[in-house]
Simulated scan of single mutants.
Amino acid sequence: MKYFKATVKFGHVGKSNFYKGYVYLRAESKKEVAEKSRYCPRVKHDHKDAILNVEEIDKDLYLEGLEKNRAINYFSCYNVQEQRECFCEIEDSIFKENNVECKQVRHSKKRSLRKTYNDDPDFDYYRHNKNLDYFVA
């Protein structure tokens, strides 16, 4: 087994933000590390670019990295209140997402179609002649 360090995007740090952190794993290939790290807790699973980098390291750096991750309280929080308390130790590694505009459009409020229907001549005919059969063959 080889030892790897994967740089990934972690979530739960605010809308359109991510925490750039590291996951230390043992695997046979970089592809296997990328698959495993995508489903680690707090990683942005649904993002195509969640895995930023994968590099091979030696056993000493692997063990040292595991100890560093255990020392970061962000990875051991059970609720939002605990996470807010430890926010100060990770705030210098929090970045904005590149595609913020796309997210805002996706979460925009759906508008009424009334204006569209009012401009449609078929709808206007149907509205004024409710008693007539609209679908006449």
Rank of each mutant, 00 (worst) to 15 (best):
K2G: 02
T7Q: 09
K9R: 15
K9S: 05
H12S: 11
N17R: 15
F18Y: 15
F18L: 03
K20W: 01
V23C: 07
A27D: 03
E28D: 13
K31V: 13
E32A: 12
A34D: 02
K36D: 01
S37W: 00
S37I: 04
S37E: 02
Y39P: 00
V43H: 01
K44H: 07
D46R: 12
H47S: 08
D49Y: 06
D49T: 10
E55H: 04
E56C: 07
L63A: 05
L63Y: 08
L63C: 04
G65E: 01
R70N: 11
Y78H: 10
N79W: 03
N79V: 05
V80T: 07
E82H: 03
R84Q: 13
C88M: 06
S93F: 09
V100P: 00
E101L: 11
C102A: 13
H107G: 07
H107T: 06
K110N: 09
K110M: 09
K115P: 00
Y117A: 07
N118L: 14
N118W: 04
D119C: 13
D119P: 00
D124L: 12
H128V: 06
H128D: 12
K130R: 14
N131I: 08
N131V: 05
Y134M: 14
F135Q: 11
F135I: 14
A137C: 05
